[in-house]
Design a protein around this nucleic acid. Structure first.
Lengths: 150, 150
DNA sequence: AAATTTTAGTTGCAAATGCAACAAAATGGC
DNA sequence: GCCATTTTGTTGCATTTGCAACTAAAATTT
């Protein structure tokens, strides 16, 4: 069997750990940078979609976003056409911190890809996208209460 | 820039989420399967090494392992040649549940790799191993209190 | 149009996570 | 042999995480 998932788990935990340590200096606590960059890049996105985008429980997203709001990195705006929805936007303070997060992201990516040539980099990205699609489908399936048979 | 880390984060969170839901049926709670499989495959490993292997804080590992012990999945044995070390081993109960975890792992891997041919599967594995090595080095560096410059 | 289902969001737990700060054994100079 | 450093492990917080269970609005069915 080709076993890639453990490797992916190790990489993800490492980077998460690194980011959390590095962003503590700003007052961005655990995991919040994840949400902030997505809101920056998708202004007006709602909580539910954001949770689905990063594959996190919606209640977890709700609280992380609440904290970002409390710390004035983002704000919510009631949608006019849909009373349920609260659209999310980055504040000036949030906009100001974005480049820092982005710079860290670029650095980590380059570090991670060290020793891979251009073709290999393109290749791994392409393959990971496929894996992501596969896995996302099972995530939706299981999260909705369905049972995988194996 | 080639951006692979977000993809890796999404994949890892999805699978973690799926595993946690599926293993709740046995009395394995959040994340514990991670430790159990490694102890099974590396009998006599100590806590510190195990934490380093899966890239998790040593205090987190300590408590997860304590719980595995309490629930009788594993046991600790004082090392004879080193009084600090407590070697870890899987109990009969732990051995009995291992195939279930392994089977889920195989299934998830196959699911994740759907649509990739044999050569692509070998390739992504090879490239991920390189990425893992790169990232692991930075993790050690940052975890020890050093600061990355960028 | 009324009833049902789905979507979006919230709160109450219980548990996991990780930084700080600590203890004790082992190791490495000198 | 003695002292400083590293290794291994623990406990005390504070925070994050996510399943259950719940509202309320929107969309869909009948």
């Amino acid at each position: 069997m080709v076993e890639i998932l453990r490797s992916i788990g190790v990489i993800a935990r490492s980077l998460d750990s690194i980011s959390n340590i590095e962003f503590k200096d700003y007052d961005l606590t655990k995991g919040q940078y994840l949400y902030l960059v997505r809101i920056y890049e998708n202004p007006g996105i709602i909580q539910e979609k954001l949770a689905g985008m990063i594959k996190v429980d919606k209640t977890t997203a709700a609280r992380a976003i609440k904290k970002l709001e409390k710390n004035n990195f983002i704000f919510r705006k009631q949608s006019t056409d849909n009373k349920k929805e609260k659209k999310l936007y980055v504040t000036d303070k949030g906009k100001k911190i974005y480049p820092t997060i982005y710079r860290e992201d670029i650095y980590s990516n380059q570090m991670a890809l060290k020793g891979l040539d251009a073709a290999e980099q393109k290749q791994i990205l392409k393959l990971l996208k496929k894996v992501e699609d596969n896995v996302a489908a099972d995530w939706e399936y299981v999260k909705k209460g369905n049972k995988r048979e194996y």
